[in-house]
Amino acid sequence: MARRGKAVAGSGSGGRLGTNKETEALAKRARKQGWTVEVTGGNHLKWTPPPLDKPKDKWTEEDKERQTPEICGLTPVSVAFVTLKRRLVKKGLNPNG
């Protein structure tokens, strides 16, 4: 299980979040796509999308929205998990990749 505040992005076997299986699987897919998933000091998960390939001064409002991290509970229940997944897809995560 990751300690609070520790980033768990990457492919090491120590990247477990201590969450349920669905969330672990989603985090694994997100990390493969360049996302950073970390446990915050308040025992929440912070999902940060990979950086965009263009300078920050050229970002549109949509780009700014997509780069805002998503925060969720450490073990989101079914409805919250569906909502989280939908929000991450909206920010560019491929849920099947």
Rank of each mutant, 00 (worst) to 15 (best):
A30I: 06
K6N: 09
A9R: 11
L26K: 09
K91F: 08
L26N: 06
R29D: 06
Q33N: 07
R87N: 15
L74N: 05
G14M: 11
K28I: 01
S78N: 09
W35T: 11
C72W: 14
A80E: 13
K91H: 09
A27I: 08
P95G: 04
V8E: 05
T19A: 15
G73F: 01
R66A: 15
G14K: 15
A80Q: 11
R31G: 12
V37S: 03
E65S: 03
G34S: 04
G34E: 02
T75M: 13
E22W: 11
E24C: 11
L88V: 01
P50W: 10
K91A: 10
P69Q: 05
A9V: 04
T48N: 05
R16Y: 00
E22T: 08
E70Y: 15
T83R: 10
E65M: 00
T40K: 09
R86W: 11
C72H: 10
C72I: 07
L93C: 07
G5P: 13
R3L: 14
N96S: 10
P50Y: 09
T23V: 14
P51K: 13
Q33T: 03
L45F: 07
W35M: 10
A27S: 07
R3V: 13
I71E: 03
P50A: 09
Q33A: 06
E62T: 14
K90Q: 14
Q67S: 12
R66C: 12
R87T: 12
K32V: 14
D57R: 07
P69K: 06
R29Q: 09
T83E: 08
L74M: 13
D53P: 03
Q33Y: 13
G73K: 13
L26I: 13
G97H: 01
G14S: 15
L26Q: 05
G41A: 03
V79R: 14
T19G: 06
T40M: 06
L17K: 07
K64S: 12
P51N: 06
A27M: 02
L17D: 08
I71Q: 02
A25W: 01
E22H: 12
R16Q: 05
L26P: 03
R87Y: 02
S13I: 03
G12C: 06
D63N: 10
T83F: 01
E38N: 04
L93H: 00
G12S: 15
W47R: 02
F81I: 00
T19E: 02
Q33M: 05
A30R: 03
R4E: 04
L74H: 12
T68C: 05
A25D: 04
